[in-house]
Computed example of a mutant assay.
Amino acid sequence: MIMKVILTVLVLAILYILYKYETQHIETTEYTIFNEKIPKEFNDFKIVQVSDLHNKVFDKNNNKTLIDKIESLNPDVIFITGDLVDGENKNFQIALDLIDNLVKKYEVYHIIGNHEQKSLIKKYKHLYRDYFKELYSKKIINMENESVRIYKGDSYINLYGLIIPLECYPYFFANNKKLELRDSFVQDKLGKINENEYNMLLAHTPFFFEKYVKWGADLVLAGHVHGGIIRIPFIGGVLSPNREFFPKYDWGKYEKGSSTMVLNKGLGGSKVLIRLNCKPEVVRITLKSN
């Protein structure tokens, strides 16, 4: 009996540590991207990527811990790669407050993730109506199958935002099957790119990296996988939202041909809220012209 009590206390203590430490301490990861197509005016241009907040609260002071972490990275722009909110959680004010804080100092570019896309499902529509009304009234640049040029002087780099259909997101706790994208999907949505210019793509899911490469993206920023939730040293992430163990893409920098993808571990979680060796993350990317 005493041994059972000790084991129970030990398990509860471990779970508490996993929740309080692994989920509450934000890491920063920095990458440097070299490409001869980056204009010299964009040398040392700093992008901070935020992803998969899922209504996460890091402190009782309007997420000041997260804001301070972002500010410490001295970004030129901020890219948000989806899932600021959690699909069935009505507390959208956390995401809206974060946007309010960020747009005071920075240009913020944003795409929606699969959780925001649940607004397309009839039974969830009423939850999102007010959220999107408020979100789109704010001073952010929403990149829903759209493109913009980011200028410094007369030079620019191109930014695209791609929305992957909700049917392409299978879940552990659902009966849906993954729908594959047709080869022409990205170009059909975003058009043909100028391969002589530097082209960045915001895409919530990394699992279509090959499609992004074929289209011609130089730099892809993605999230969705939460780093695999549990990370085993020298092996990688264990769990994927795509109902698979040890996913091909879980976290970090991937390269294929002349394209690079940065995959963010994200900040919060959905359904599975623990993290092990997989702390929340904010990413800074520094561009370098050759």
Score class of each variant (00 low, 15 high):
Met200Thr: 02
Val108Gly: 00
Asp130Thr: 13
Lys125Trp: 12
Lys192Val: 14
Glu116Cys: 07
Lys133Phe: 10
Tyr109Lys: 05
Leu166Ile: 14
Lys133Asn: 12
Lys125Phe: 15
Val148Arg: 02
Glu134Lys: 11
Asn142Leu: 14
Asn158Val: 05
Leu162Thr: 01
Asn176Ser: 13
Gln117Trp: 02
His204Lys: 12
Ala217Asn: 02
Phe92His: 02
Lys214Ile: 05
Met143Ala: 11
Ile141Tyr: 06
Gln93Glu: 11
Leu120Cys: 12
Tyr156Trp: 08
Val213Pro: 00
Ser119Trp: 07
Lys105Gly: 15
Thr81Phe: 02
Cys168Thr: 09
Ile80Phe: 03
Phe79Leu: 14
Lys211Ile: 02
Gln93Asn: 15
Asn196Met: 13
Phe92Cys: 06
Leu96Val: 03
Gly216Phe: 09
Asp100Arg: 11
Thr205Tyr: 03
Lys139Val: 12
Lys118Ile: 05
Lys125Val: 14
Glu116Ser: 09
Tyr128Met: 01
Phe207Arg: 05
Asn194Gly: 13
Val103Met: 12
Asn196Tyr: 11
Tyr171Arg: 12
Asn176Asp: 08
His115Val: 07
Thr81Ile: 02
Leu96His: 03
Lys118Leu: 14
Glu195Ala: 15
Glu167Asp: 15
Asp97Pro: 09
Val148Cys: 10
Lys177Leu: 15
Asp100Asn: 11
His115Phe: 04
Val77Leu: 08
Phe207Gln: 12
Gly153Cys: 06
Glu197Ser: 15
Leu120Lys: 15
Asn114Val: 06
Thr205Ser: 08
Pro206Lys: 01
Phe79His: 04
Gly82Met: 05
Lys139Ser: 10
Phe208Ala: 03
Val108Glu: 01
Tyr151Leu: 07
Gly216Ile: 03
Asn176Gln: 14
Asn175Leu: 11
Val108Pro: 00
Glu116Gln: 13
His204Ala: 08
Ile141Ser: 07
Asn89Ser: 09
Phe172Met: 13
Tyr128Ser: 05
Tyr124Lys: 04
Tyr128Gln: 01
Ala95Phe: 04
Asn89Leu: 10
Glu167Gly: 11
Tyr169Phe: 13
Lys177Val: 13
Val148Lys: 06
Lys139Gly: 09
Phe209Trp: 04
His204Met: 09
Leu179Val: 13
Asn74Asp: 15
Ala174His: 13
Phe209Tyr: 10
Glu144Trp: 09
Asn145Tyr: 05
Asn196Trp: 15
Leu98Tyr: 02
Asn89Trp: 03
Phe172Val: 14
Glu134Tyr: 10
Ile99Gln: 06
Lys123Ile: 08
Gly153Met: 06
His115Ala: 09
Lys139Glu: 12
Asp76Gly: 08
Leu159Glu: 01
Val148Trp: 04
Leu221Glu: 00
Leu162Pro: 04
Phe92Pro: 00
Val148Asp: 03
Asp83His: 04
Asn114Gln: 11
Phe172Pro: 07
Asp218Gly: 03
Ile111Lys: 00
Leu181Lys: 03
Lys139Ile: 02
Tyr109Gly: 00
Met200Leu: 08
Tyr171Cys: 10
Tyr160Met: 13
Lys105Phe: 08
Ile111Trp: 01
Cys168Gly: 05
Glu180Trp: 15
